[in-house]
Amino acid sequence: MKVIVPVKRVIDYNVKVRVKADGSGVDLTNVKMSMNPFDEIAVEEAIRLREAEKVTEVIAVSIGVKQNQETLRTALAMGADRAILVIASEDVHQDIEPLTVAKLLKEIATEEAANLVLCGKQAIDNDMNATGQMLSALLGWSQATFASELNIEAKNAVVTREVDGGLQSIKVSLPSVITVDLRLNQPRYASLPNIMKAKRKQLDEKVPSDYGVDLTARLSIINTREPETRKAGVKVASVDELLVKLKEEAGVI
């Protein structure tokens, strides 16, 4: 069984995000970029499945700019077997919409005759949380989202999902699209031998037209702004004063 792991190149989670002056988005010029942390968890899980001999091949896929090569090399250094890069833009600021990504992934999953797609539940840049679900619908496969535990059986996957108020276990039949959550695993560091091997692994470069997918945008960003800065709190001298403030100023009791 082959598993496809889509990985997105996003602004590193440590970097202080700066909104562009014209509000068209976030400034990505000369900013450190990394693999989306949720995708890293998906790569780790896929490698573990291969180590447990539940899957035979781990294929990392990235859709975006040429520089996504680095992100794919990271996945290869972690242990993915090969990679596919779909160059869909020349501009790092152009985000490829979830539906377009899902359509491309559908073609790739079909072409590769894969049985499983493991992806991050969302990308930390725009938090869309949509690609996995769209992909499952396009492929007509089952879906399980927010996985915090995953067991692959012969024809099924048993997935524990983190939902409001607790954990839910579901069984889905394969093929399936599974999106992973933070607590599924702790991604490994790339080992030195694997870093050295990564360059020799196969990385195919494609363009959207290879898959007959149209890139036309359906969404437009109207404005991007920084969140309101949190105002300093106030100290109260007594419980009574607190109650008064909660009643009269905050109006919550």
Partner: peptide, 30 residues
């Protein structure tokens, strides 16, 4: 907040490190 990753990113490129070497740097840093 590692704001100066910006600076480090540029200087790393200036040294002309290859992909493996950059990956060694980021792995050990991590």
């Amino acid at each position: 907040n590692k704001v100066n990753e910006i600076i480090l990113g540029i200087s790393r490129m200036q040294y002309g490190l290859n992909e493996e070497q950059e990956m060694i740097v980021s792995t050990v840093r991590n």
